[in-house]
Write a protein that binds this DNA or RNA. Structure first.
Lengths: 236, 236
DNA sequence: CAGTGGTCTAGACCACCGA
DNA sequence: CGGTGGTCTAGACCACTGG
C-alpha cells in the first residue's frame, strides 16, 4: 500500500484512471465492483463510491445500476466553450478594448424574431448593434435583440462602461444557452462596419440565452476570420 | 416543502439553485453553512455536503475551506465541444457516411511539423488525406499527420471500416487535446476535393491530440461553411 | 435469486479561516 | 478560539440488473 498523503478516494481514482490510461483496461472492459475495490484498498464503501462516481462524472467510466461499471466507450474529452465577455477576453490578452455603438433602439418583433425570443409578433424588442475593437482594430460586430422582460433598462445602459454580455449576465443570471458557429461571407454592410473586404470569410456565432422563464436575448456575433479564432484546450 | 420523491440531496440542490436563479442570493452572497442546511432539511451532513459539493463542481458556488460557501461571481456556463467521431455524428443524424482516401503515405517531417508532433526534423511521419461524405455530399476534408510512435500500424488501417479519429482513440486513449477554429477560404485543391467554389468560406478546425508521453496526431479539418456548423447547448 | 450501484445516517477527526 | 468545509467509517435500505 502506497501510504501517500493523498486522500483515500484520490488514490482509488488514480488507480482506476491509471489502469485505463495505460491501456490495461480497454473501452468496454468491466471495472472492479465497489465491493472489490473496497477490499483491495481497505476503505469504506462510501469512499470507493465517491471515487468511481467522480470518474463517471468525468466521463472516464460508465455506471449502470444493477449491472456494474465499465470503461467508457469513447474517451470523450470535452472542452469548455464558455460564455465569455469580449471585454475581459481582450484585457486578458493585454490589449485595449473599445466599443462603438451603431444602433440602439426599440423594434417591433417580426414573426421570426418573436419566435426566437418567445414573444408575440409586434411586441417591442430592444435592438443594439455595436463594434468591439481591440487596440483600435474591429474584432467583433455584435447584433443583439433583447427581451425587455429580461432587461427593462437595456436602452439606458452606458456601453462605454460595460458590455451587453456583462450587463445581461448581471441583470439576469443565465440558466441555459445554445449556440451555433459557422463560416460565412459578410454582407456589404457588415464588411463596411468591420472594415474588411466582402471576400474575407468570417466566423459567425449565433447565441440564444435563457434566464429562468424568459429568453433573455439573441445575439449574432460576426468575427473577421483573419483576426479571430476560437481556441480551447482540455485534458484528463 | 415540496415533499416530492426526489432524493434528499437533490432537494437541497434544487433549493440552493432556486435561490440563486431567482436572484434571492446574488453573486458574492454567502450560502448557508452545511450545518444550517442540515438542520433546515433534517438530513445528515454527508447529504448536504454532497449537494453543495456538486453545485461547486457545476460552478454555481465557490467553497473555501474554513471560510464558507458563496454564490459564484460569474455564472460562467460552459459547453462541451467534444472530440467526436464524424462517423457516429453522421449516423446519429440518420444519414449515411462514406470515406474517400486521397492520400496515405509516410513523409519526412519538416521543421514545423516536427515541432508540432514533438519529433526531430526528418523523422518519418504518417500522413493521410481523406474526404468524408454525408449521403454522398462532401462534408469534411481531413488532413492528418500521425506520430508513428503512437500508432505504428496506422498505414495498414482499413478506413472503409473505421475512421482515423476512432482508430486513434482506440489505439492510444487521449489524455489532452487543443484545438482552434477559424474561418478561411479553401485553397484551389481543397475546393476541388470538397466540390465547392473557392469563394465559399469554410470552418477550419486544427486539433492536436496528446496520448500519454506522445503527441498522437495533428489534424486539419476543413468543413464547407454552407453545409456544416458547430452547435452546442448547455444549461444549469 | 445474488450482485450491483444509489442513497442515506450518525457519528468522527482533521485542516483551515477569521476574530 | 469556534465555525467552516474535507474527508472518512461502518453500517443500512433500496432499485435495478442479470441469470
Amino acid at each position: 500500500m502506497p501510504h501517500s498523503k493523498l486522500p483515500a478516494y484520490q488514490q482509488v481514482k488514480a488507480f482506476v484512471r491509471g489502469r485505463i490510461m495505460q491501456g490495461c483496461w480497454r473501452a468496454g472492459d468491466a471495472v472492479p465492483s465497489e465491493a472489490a475495490l473496497q477490499q483491495q484498498f481497505g476503505v469504506s464503501r462510501m469512499t470507493v463510491n465517491r471515487a468511481v462516481k467522480e470518474l463517471a462524472v468525468e466521463g472516464l467510466v460508465t455506471r449502470v445500476q444493477g449491472s456494474g461499471t465499465v470503461v467508457a466507450q469513447l474517451h470523450r474529452i470535452s472542452s469548455t466553450l464558455a460564455v465569455r465577455d469580449i471585454h475581459e477576453e481582450i484585457l486578458e490578452r493585454g490589449h485595449s478594448h473599445g466599443t462603438q455603438v451603431l444602433v440602439i433602439e426599440t423594434q417591433r418583433a417580426d414573426a421570426v424574431l418573436a419566435q426566437w425570443l418567445g414573444l408575440q409578433g409586434g411586441e417591442p424588442v430592444f435592438h443594439s448593434v455595436m463594434v468591439h475593437t481591440e487596440d483600435g482594430v474591429p474584432m467583433l460586430l455584435e447584433d443583439r435583440h433583447v427581451n425587455p422582460a429580461a432587461a427593462p433598462d437595456y436602452l439606458k445602459v452606458d456601453f462605454g462602461t460595460t458590455t451587453p454580455t456583462r450587463y445581461l449576465l448581471e441583470q439576469a443570471p443565465l440558466t441555459e444557452a445554445s449556440y451555433s458557429i459557422e463560416a460565412a461571407l459578410p454582407s456589404a454592410q457588415e464588411a463596411r462596419r468591420l472594415a474588411i473586404k466582402r471576400s474575407e470569410p468570417c466566423l459567425v456565432m449565433t447565441r440564444r440565452t435563457v434566464s429562468g422563464q424568459h429568453v433573455a436575448s439573441v445575439a449574432r456575433h460576426v468575427y473577421p476570420g483573419q483576426r479571430y479564432s476560437f481556441r480551447g484546450k482540455f485534458e484528463l
